[in-house]
């Protein structure tokens, strides 16, 4: 029996998985909106302490990485595996940059004594404790998704270089792209919710 291959099916499966990813973050958004509603002033004050410049920079990085992966798919479909690989490499680079900046941000906050259960944070108001609790769990979960994405992207890079992904068979790369875009979209919401609304 021939091996069954259904590109459209794979894409549907990926999308369904992404829907459940959205709801995974959805649970956190429910918490965020409820706690923001209950502690508007504390959230306002706490948001001032995040570094808006770094946040903006990270947003631009992710947006650009979304462009680079979409171009990588575009070129593999055209049969240009070299350009496709280069754009994949760029995406990986941007992802690492994102995590690097995130690392700088977190360590700065932790250096200031603002981390869950820190004596300094416990001395603050309850709304601020919640803000930072949510900040760490939401950006942390997002960062974890970026990290997982980086592993998948690297695997894709190998496959593209080996020619296992080519102009006839590119659905795995497309699905990786879908995942990466979703990670981008979640950041598009996290960024204003934590850094901008003050």
């Amino acid at each position: 029996m021939e091996t069954h291959r259904d590109d459209m099916g794979s894409k549907i499966g990926m999308w369904l998985f992404l829907l459940s990813e959205i709801l995974l973050f959805g649970g956190l958004f429910i918490l965020y909106s409820s706690y923001r509603y209950k502690n508007p002033i504390d959230f306002h004050l706490a948001a001032w302490e995040l570094d808006r410049v770094l946040g903006t920079f990270n947003t631009l990085i992710l947006i650009t990485s979304s462009l680079s992966i979409v171009l990588s798919i575009f070129f593999v479909q055209k049969g240009n595996r070299r350009l496709s690989g280069l754009f994949l490499l760029a995406t990986i680079f941007l992802g690492i940059l994102f995590l690097g900046i995130k690392y700088v941000e977190w360590t700065a906050k932790i250096g200031h004594g603002l981390y869950p259960n820190s004596p300094r944070l416990l001395g603050r108001s309850k709304g601020e404790i919640l803000f930072f609790g949510l900040y760490y769990s939401m950006t942390g979960l997002h960062g974890l998704h970026v990290l997982i994405g980086l592993f998948i992207l690297s695997a894709m890079l190998v496959l593209v270089m080996k020619g296992k992904i080519n102009e006839h068979r590119f659905v795995p790369l497309e699905n990786t792209g879908l995942y990466w875009h979703l990670v981008d979209i979640i950041w598009i919401f996290l960024f204003p919710l934590f850094y901008l609304i003050t």
């Binding site: 918490l31 409820s34 706690y35 209950k38 502690n39 869950p116 259960n117 416990l122 108001s125 309850k126 709304g127 404790i129 919640l130 930072f132 609790g133 949510l134 760490y136 769990s137």
Partner: peptide, 14 residues
């Protein structure tokens, strides 16, 4: 593990 407080009433959680 980390005591983020989101469900702990002592830290404002609901």
């Amino acid at each position: 593990y980390f005591g983020i407080g989101v469900f702990d009433p002592a830290k404002g959680g609901d």
